[in-house]
Nucleic acid binder design. Structure first.
Lengths: 323, 323
DNA sequence: CCCAGAAACTTGAACGATCCAATCATGCCG
DNA sequence: CGGCATGATTGGATCGTTCAAGTTTCTGGG
C-alpha cells in the first residue's frame, strides 16, 4: 500500500497550502471555485481521508456516539435492541457519526463508563435506552452538559432533554380496538406491575379503549412466558371471563396463547420472532425509524446547537391469526 | 467541571516531566519505585485519563475493534448476533479495547467501509462474522496486513488467519445421539442447500451419527419456518418415515415441529427464544465464550505479535420436551 | 577521589489536522 | 494611479501524547 496520504500530500498535489485543502473540506465557500475543484480532484486522485484523531485533537469532536448494549433478558425481546442498534448504525453513517458500544452491569457502573468514555475517547454524545423513573444517568449527563438522547420519554420532568419514543398507549389502544371490531366485548389485559413508565402506558391504552367496565380484567405480573400462562389461567377462571387478552409483551402473550381455549384472542407487543412463529397478532414498534430520529436529534444538538423537539412515533398493529 | 487534566497537569502536580508520567503508564520498570508511586497518586488525585486521540496519533493504535451489525434476517436468529456483540463488548473492555459498529449492505460495500474506517479512525482490527466460501473480505484484509479474526472458520485455505468457531458437526452429532438414545432409529435431517460451510458441517454431524442407512432422509431448503414445514411434510409422507428430525436451525425446526404428529421428535439449532417458547430441544452455541476468544486472539495479534492458534468450541444440547 | 557505566529523568520534535493572524492578489473609487 | 476594502491564500502555533536523544544523578571499583 502507498504511504499515508495526509492533508500535506493533497496540498502539494494540488499546488496549494494545507489550509486551503482544509477550507475546501470544512468551509468551501471561502475558496474560489476553480481552486476548490482542483483540490477536490487531488483528494479523489489520492484517495485522501481526513484523519479523525488529528481532527479530534483540534476540534474536540470525535464524531462518535455511544450506546449501551444490554445482556438479553429472556431473549425474546433481544432482537428489539438488535434492530434498534442496526438502525442507529445505518442512520449515523451518512451523518458522519459512528456507533461505539459499551456494556455496564447497572446504572452506577454505566456512569463510571461515561466518565471513562468522555475522558479517553471524547465522545460526542450518548443514546440511552430503557430509561426509568428517577434515572440517575440522565441527571448525571445533563449536569455535565453532555449531549444525549433517550429512546423512551423522561418519566420525571416533562421535556428536560431530547427524546424519541413510541406511543405505547396508542399501540394497546389499536390492539384493543381491533378486538372490539372483531366483536369481542370483554377484553382482558396482562401487564407488568405499576411503576414502569412503559408498562403503565401500555395498560392505559387498553383501559381507554376497553372502557371502565373492563377495569377488573387486568392482571399485573413480572415479564415471562410462565407468568403470562398463569395470569391467563387466572383471568379465564373467573365468572364471565374475557374472550380476548391484550398483553404488554410477546413473552406474556406467548404464555397466554398456549393456554387459552380456541376462540379466545390474544395480542402481544413488539412483533418479535416469537410472535411471528406462533402467529401472534402483535404491536410493532418502528425501530429503524426511532433510531434514525435519535440520530437526527443528537446530530441537531451537536451540529446545529438547536434544542430539538421530542418525537413520538406511532406503532402499528401486525395482524396474524391469534386475533 | 474542572479544566482538562492532561499529562502535563499530572507532571506538574508530581514534580516530574511529562515523559516520566508517560513512562509510569507505559513502561513502569524504567521509573524508580518512589517516583512511580508519587506519579500514581497524582494521577488518582486528579482523575487523569490518557487521551486516546493523542495517543493514537503518536502510536498508530486506536484500541478500537470493528464489528459489522447485520440486519436481522427472519428475526429468529437475530438474538444470536445480539448476544455475540454483548460478549465482545464485555470481553474487549478489560483488554483495553472498544467495539465500533458498522453496517454494510454486501461484501463489496463492506470493503469500502474497511477502507474508510482504517483511514479515518485507524482501527486496530476487525471481527468478521458469517464468513463463507470465497469470501473477498478476508483476502482483502489479509493482503493489506490488517489484523482480523473470524467467527466461523475459513472455508478455503485451512489456517490462513486466526479464527474461532463452534463445532457445528459436534452439535448435530450430539442431537442425533440424543435421539438414538431415546430409541429413535430412523432420524431425518432438514438443512440448507450444499455450499454453506456451516450448513454442510451440521449435516455431516447428523450423517455420521445417523449412519449410512439414513442417507435418503435428508432434505435441503433455504432457511425459514414455512420451508421447514414443507420439508417435514415431505419427509413424513414417504414410506417408513423418520420418527425424529434434526434441523439445521430453529426456524426450520419451528416449522417442522408445527406439523409433525405427536411422538415425532424435533431438534433445532441456536437455542433461540423461539426454541425456548416452543419447548424445542436445540443446540446452544457458547456465544459469550466465542466472543471472548475472538477478543483474545485479536488482542494477541495486536499486543503480542503472536500468531495464535484457532479455537474450536464445543456446543451444548439444551433438552426440552420436543425431543 | 575519580571515572565509567548504568539508571533516572528531562527536553525538543513529531503525529495530522485546525485555528489564528498575517500576507498577497484583486478590483473599485476618487 | 494611489489608497483601500475585500477576498483568497499562506505560515506558524497548537491539541495531548510518545519517541528519540540528551542530561543529570547514582553506584561501585580502582
Amino acid at each position: 500500500m502507498a504511504d499515508k496520504v495526509t492533508i500535506a500530500t493533497v496540498a502539494a498535489h494540488a499546488n496549494v497550502s494545507r489550509q486551503t485543502v482544509s477550507n475546501v473540506l470544512n468551509t468551501p465557500h471561502l475558496v474560489r471555485e476553480e481552486t476548490r475543484e482542483r483540490v477536490r480532484e487531488a483528494i479523489a486522485a489520492l484517495g485522501y481521508r481526513a484523519n479523525q484523531a488529528a481532527r479530534l485533537m483540534r476540534t474536540g469532536r470525535s464524531h462518535l456516539l455511544a450506546v449501551r448494549i444490554e445482556p438479553t433478558q429472556d431473549g425474546i425481546n433481544g432482537s428489539v435492541l438488535d434492530r434498534f442498534l442496526h438502525g442507529l448504525t445505518e442512520a449515523a453513517a451518512p451523518a458522519g457519526y459512528r456507533i461505539l458500544l459499551y456494556a455496564a452491569a447497572d446504572d452506577k457502573a454505566e456512569i463510571t463508563t461515561y466518565d471513562d468514555l468522555l475522558a479517553t475517547y471524547e465522545l460526542d454524545g450518548f443514546v440511552l435506552t430503557s430509561t426509568h423513573h428517577g434515572d440517575v444517568r440522565t441527571s448525571w449527563l445533563a449536569e455535565r452538559g453532555v449531549p444525549f438522547v433517550t429512546f423512551g420519554r423522561p418519566w420525571g420532568a416533562p421535556d428536560s432533554h431530547p427524546w424519541v419514543d413510541v406511543d405505547n398507549a396508542a399501540g394497546t389502544d389499536a390492539a384493543t380496538r381491533h378486538l372490539l371490531d372483531a366483536g369481542h366485548r370483554r377484553i382482558g389485559f396482562i401487564g407488568w406491575p405499576e411503576g414502569s413508565g412503559v408498562g403503565d402506558a401500555r395498560r392505559s391504552g387498553w383501559a381507554a379503549a376497553a372502557g371502565p367496565e373492563s377495569a377488573d380484567l387486568a392482571r399485573a405480573t413480572v415479564d415471562g412466558v410462565a407468568e403470562g400462562e398463569a395470569a391467563a389461567r387466572d383471568l379465564l377462571s373467573i365468572s364471565d371471563p374475557p374472550t380476548a387478552l391484550v398483553c404488554a409483551s410477546d413473552s406474556l402473550a406467548a404464555g397466554a396463547y398456549a393456554v387459552v381455549p380456541p376462540g379466545v384472542a390474544v395480542t402481544g407487543f413488539d412483533d418479535t420472532a416469537v410472535a411471528r412463529v406462533l402467529g401472534l397478532t402483535s404491536v410493532a414498534q418502528p425501530l429503524a425509524e426511532a433510531a434514525a430520529r435519535c440520530v437526527d436529534l443528537l446530530a441537531g444538538v451537536l451540529d446545529g446547537g438547536t434544542t430539538p423537539r421530542p418525537v413520538l412515533l406511532p406503532p402499528s398493529l401486525v395482524i396474524r391469526h391469534s386475533a
